[in-house]
Computed example of a mutant assay.
Amino acid sequence: MSTSTPHSASPDPTSVFDHGVEHEQVVFAQDPASGLRAIIAIHSTALGPALGGTRFYPYASTAAALDDALALSRGMSYKAAVAGLDLGGGKAVIIGDPTTMKSEALLRAYGRFVESLAGRYVTACDVGTFSEDMDLVARESGHVTGRTLAAGGAGDSSVLTAYGVFRGLQAAAEHAWGDRDPADVLAGRTVGVAGVGKVGRHLVGHLVEAGARVVVTDVSEAALDRVRQAHPSVRAVGSTEELVASAIDVYAPCALGGALTPEVVAGLQARIVCGAANNQLAHAGVDKLVEEAGLVYAPDFVVNAGGLIQVADELVGFDFDRARARAATIYDTTRSVLERAATDAVPTAVAADRIAEQRMRDVGRLRGIWLR
């Protein structure tokens, strides 16, 4: 296995400092024997070691994979800071199709890569990886969370990710409509969920239990079938475009990032946007469009922090009830962000950034760069 030191999307690695990359460290690795090609991006260790999942995805290019790692790791720094965790932000991507490339050899090679960073980065599950995969990674590294319960880990982090999104949505609904107890603020409302994979299907369960009408879409028929079998009242539509144009009260993007484009914002009939997908704002300036459209946007890195909370609890000996109780406070955090946005007269995404940045400044200056 070979690794290289900080790099940017530019073809010339020596120009990293000229391209606005704010990350502490970006490391590439490959293991030809197993086919591993991976990138770990450490955005910040101001609050502690960088914790973030491993995404296994067939990126079109190395540059696309790097862009994703950089954006996702930055989001993890902000997510941990807003959630009040003593953790920094990092993310890893493995380039390739997990359905054909994933193997014990590859995952263990990746584990050795993680271990080479000596604890500055702690990994977990993400798109394309599961708790069973983390068990294999952990055979080579002591810096792994999200392992199976049988291996002493926190298990599937999508459970508390979905719960946290649900709690954030309750806060957003109370902010938008008020006059109801949070427990029934979603009753009778129509929620459109785009993506019913690991997180989305758990979110659907919470919504149905809360009395919401749920409409879903997914590119996977198998995923749709699982949800409809578990919840016969759920209705499916053929595409995200159809879902967005529907008469829904809440839009919950729960697939990949970039869900909120100017076109989507212009066509949305929903009052609230609150979902589990990372990096929902397609590009800078969309947050302002969201505000101008009168949408209540619960920032993704605020409401989807439940999974991070779950795997972070594993670092001190996992206790599900303790982690769930902390994930429940996402309701209060979301309320604080919405109130800060109103007070500062800024989009909610800006308000959330300010809260995170303030904590990283106030606490981070006491710690400096985290070293084991």
Score class of each variant (00 low, 15 high):
46 A>W: 06
27 V>R: 02
8 S>Y: 03
304 N>D: 05
357 E>C: 04
334 T>I: 14
320 F>V: 03
173 A>K: 10
297 Y>V: 11
202 H>S: 07
42 I>G: 00
227 V>E: 07
9 A>C: 14
133 D>C: 05
146 G>I: 01
358 Q>N: 13
346 V>M: 13
319 D>M: 04
298 A>M: 10
43 H>M: 07
100 T>R: 10
187 A>G: 11
94 I>A: 00
177 W>P: 11
60 A>I: 12
132 E>S: 09
208 V>Q: 10
161 T>L: 01
258 G>C: 08
145 T>A: 07
334 T>V: 13
292 E>T: 13
53 G>L: 04
70 L>V: 10
150 A>K: 11
107 L>E: 01
97 D>L: 04
188 G>H: 06
166 F>I: 11
194 A>K: 07
255 A>C: 10
366 L>F: 12
208 V>C: 08
240 T>Q: 15
131 S>L: 02
102 K>G: 06
59 Y>T: 08
198 K>G: 02
279 N>V: 07
321 D>L: 07
339 E>K: 15
127 V>T: 13
294 G>R: 06
297 Y>A: 08
237 V>A: 09
140 E>F: 05
113 F>C: 06
196 V>F: 10
193 V>S: 12
359 R>D: 09
227 V>W: 06
162 A>S: 13
127 V>I: 14
102 K>M: 11
179 D>S: 13
91 K>M: 02
38 A>P: 00
111 G>T: 04
279 N>Q: 10
238 G>K: 15
254 C>H: 08
349 A>R: 08
304 N>F: 06
239 S>E: 10
187 A>V: 11
217 T>K: 09
221 E>K: 12
133 D>Q: 10
292 E>V: 11
155 G>M: 03
314 E>L: 01
85 L>I: 00
32 P>N: 03
101 M>Q: 12
281 L>E: 12
361 R>E: 15
194 A>G: 14
367 R>S: 12
149 L>K: 14
164 G>L: 01
256 L>K: 08
315 L>T: 08
227 V>D: 11
211 G>P: 08
216 V>A: 06
18 D>I: 00
312 A>M: 01
221 E>P: 07
141 S>M: 00
138 A>K: 03
188 G>D: 09
114 V>K: 03
203 L>C: 04
355 I>K: 13
214 V>K: 04
103 S>Y: 00
330 I>V: 11
28 F>W: 13
153 G>C: 02
24 E>M: 08
25 Q>D: 10
300 D>Q: 05
311 V>A: 01
73 S>L: 06
235 R>V: 15
193 V>M: 08
233 S>C: 04
57 Y>T: 03
215 V>A: 04
125 C>A: 00
106 L>I: 00
74 R>K: 15
197 G>R: 04
78 Y>N: 09
39 I>N: 01
237 V>S: 11
22 E>R: 15
116 S>D: 09
233 S>G: 14
60 A>G: 07
298 A>T: 11
192 G>R: 02
184 D>G: 09
171 A>C: 12
226 R>H: 13
79 K>F: 03
356 A>T: 11
179 D>H: 14
149 L>S: 09
318 F>T: 00
272 I>T: 07
125 C>Q: 13
330 I>A: 01
35 G>F: 03
329 T>Y: 04
136 L>I: 10
142 G>K: 15
177 W>D: 09
76 M>L: 09
